[in-house]
């Protein structure tokens, strides 16, 4: 049974719309997937991401329609043994479709370049410095003056499987410019907080550092598995050995007042233990 031309056209449109809708749905699904940025630097990245997304979406839909539409529209009918017109190319068209992507790419580069410079920019004197120490397979955070948060390796059960880790909690103040100084003495790790839309490798023998300013607190964050409520997720993003997957941490962003209270408490704790240690072994912990 042969369909009329208009029926074919309608079917073709319907198919095109179906493919388009599925594509758009999938793309939007991954678009909305990006965590809400929690830092100044991350907000710029998120805006750029959305701009790129719209450009990508338009290109994606347009080209997919061509990829599926052309062979459907120009399919060979049964019994048709004639050759189609043998066109070898078209210089104008080829120039246009070289030039347009070139313009898009240059625009994207210009936008991206700004962001690269912004996320890599550093104040000469940050409000606060925190040393991040990655080791196989736990994170530790050093606030100076002996105040540290030390992560522990995940335990193993009798069958050799790692148990659920307890992520150490990195506490930082909102609205202050924080410099993370990254240090590793064993292998390469990567310090990754998804909500900052940023990560930097922790390379042994290399001084890596970056600055961020959190723009919101983490109090409304729900609990996620081993990550407790009220904190952003953090993880090691570079394969670092057997327990790479357990090398997690969480980031609690609090108001500066809360942070000062917390820091004072930790300081007192540190002084007590340093004092204890000094009397016992006369170490230099207090002077560090």
């Amino acid at each position: 049974m042969r369909r009329t031309a208009s029926e074919r056209l309608a079917a073709r449109r319907k198919f095109g719309m179906l493919v388009g809708t599925i594509g758009v749905a999938l793309l939007l699904a991954s678009c909305t997937g990006q965590p809400e940025p929690a830092t100044q630097q991350g907000e710029g990245m998120h805006r750029l991401y959305l701009v790129m997304w719209i450009i990508a979406l338009v290109l994606f839909v347009g080209v997919e329609i061509a990829i599926w539409g052309f062979p459907l529209a120009f399919r060979r009918r049964r019994g048709d043994n004639e050759l189609p017109a043998q066109s070898h190319g078209n210089n104008v068209l080829e120039f246009v479709w070289t030039a347009i992507p070139a313009v898009i790419v240059i625009t994207l580069f210009a936008l991206s370049w700004q962001q690269i410079n912004k996320v890599q920019a550093k104040e000469p004197v940050p409000d606060r410095e925190i040393k991040v120490i990655g080791k196989q397979w736990a994170w530790s955070f050093d606030y100076g003056n002996g105040v540290t948060v030390v992560g522990e390796n995940a335990t193993k059960n009798s069958a050799g499987f790692a148990n659920e880790p307890v992520p150490p909690r990195l506490v930082v103040p909102v609205g202050q410019n924080i410099e993370f100084k990254l240090q590793s003495d064993d292998v390469i790790h990567s310090f990754y907080i998804p909500a900052t839309l940023y990560k930097l490798d922790v390379v042994p023998g290399q001084q890596n550092a970056f600055q961020v300013t959190f723009t919101k607190t983490s109090e409304d964050q729900p609990a996620h598995g081993v990550y407790s409520a009220g904190a952003f997720q953090g993880a090691c993003a570079e394969l670092c050995g057997t327990q790479h997957a357990q090398m997690l941490f969480e980031v609690e962003v609090v108001s500066p007042e809360q942070f000062d209270t917390w820091l004072r408490g930790k300081q007192a704790e540190a002084n007590r233990s340093a004092g204890g240690a000094a009397t016992a072994t006369t170490t230099t912990a207090a002077s560090q």
Partner: peptide, 25 residues
Amino acid sequence: LSQFLIGGITGVFLGSGSIDFSVHD
């Protein structure tokens, strides 16, 4: 063609440098 297009477009996101900081690794 249709799937290489997706790989290509996501490649532009990665290659841009800035977005890569969030999705690298």
